[in-house]
């Protein structure tokens, strides 16, 4: 099955105002840069974005925030973004902050056909308010619902025409679980390789979860905290 699309424009075809998107990445690591730039240029608005973070002011999802294209963010951590904080505190932006592990599992569950699950994370806190509580092994847990999206947009290191993906280092993060949870999953890759080149033993995301794949034109891969040691 050939899932390749020509370019980013073809990849994001069908994304419309008020849709729900999942976007992989942790901070600026492993984010689908090419699709984010294309979305920012498209002017599509009213988006609900499920992403662990919201980029920084002038990069990643931060660029969509600055153009007020996002109506609601579902994230676990949104520091490092002044415009985000301003829009949230002024009430312009709806924000659902959820524990990182619950966010990952809610995406995984959404892709795995599990509608909800119990977790201890957030019990007794604001996150647990209004949620069903049940004790297991003497410990209280809260019910968390699965998440799915109209489009999941992920970024991988290598991919093939069948949609098989291999991620690099910690740029893997949320990408595989979000790839599972999109009605349509778009994968942008640094390197598109020929079918058969990827070792089936070493594929992280099997192509069944991916509907569209293309090689990104350019990757800036900005570093948030450049930390080094002396030789």
């Amino acid at each position: 099955m050939d899932k390749r699309v020509k370019n980013v424009a073809e990849a994001i075809e069908g994304i419309e105002d008020n849709m729900t998107l999942m976007l992989g990445g942790f901070g600026l690591c492993g984010i689908p840069e090419n699709c984010i730039i294309a979305l920012s240029e498209s002017g599509i608005s009213g988006l609900t974005c499920i992403s662990n973070n919201a980029g920084v002011d002038n990069f990643g999802l931060g660029t969509l925030l600055q153009k007020k294209q996002i109506k609601k963010m579902i994230s676990s951590y949104v520091g490092e973004n002044d415009e985000f904080e301003r829009q949230m505190l002024s009430g312009e932006l709806e924000v659902d902050l959820i524990p990182q592990g619950s966010l990952a599992e809610r995406c995984r569950a959404g892709g795995a056909g599990i509608p909800a699950f119990f977790t201890p994370a957030g019990y007794g806190t604001e996150v647990g308010e209004g949620k069903e509580v049940r004790d297991f092994n003497g410990k209280p847990h809260i019910l968390e619902m699965a998440l799915t999206a109209d489009f999941a947009i992920v970024k991988a290191w290598k991919g093939d025409s069948a949609g098989n993906l291999v991620f690099k280092a910690t740029a893997r993060n949320f990408n595989p679980v979000m790839a599972m949870a999109g009605k349509i999953t778009i994968a942008e890759v640094e390197e598109m390789v020929s079918l058969g080149e990827l070792d089936p033993n070493e594929i992280h995301t099997p192509g069944i979860f991916v509907q569209r794949i293309f090689q990104g034109e350019k990757y800036e891969k900005r570093i948030e905290q450049r930390t080094t040691r002396q030789r």
Binding site: L28, C29, Q100, T170, R172, N173, K221, Q225
Partner: peptide, 27 residues
């Protein structure tokens, strides 16, 4: 928690990999 076991020290200058960070987003 961003997805690595067996973390080592910070890289030498010039050897930073943007794809390899810790939960504090440090290389």
């Amino acid at each position: 928690e961003n997805g690595v076991l067996g973390m080592g020290p910070f890289p030498f200058e010039g050897e930073e990999d943007p794809d390899l960070i810790n939960a504090g987003k440090q290389t």
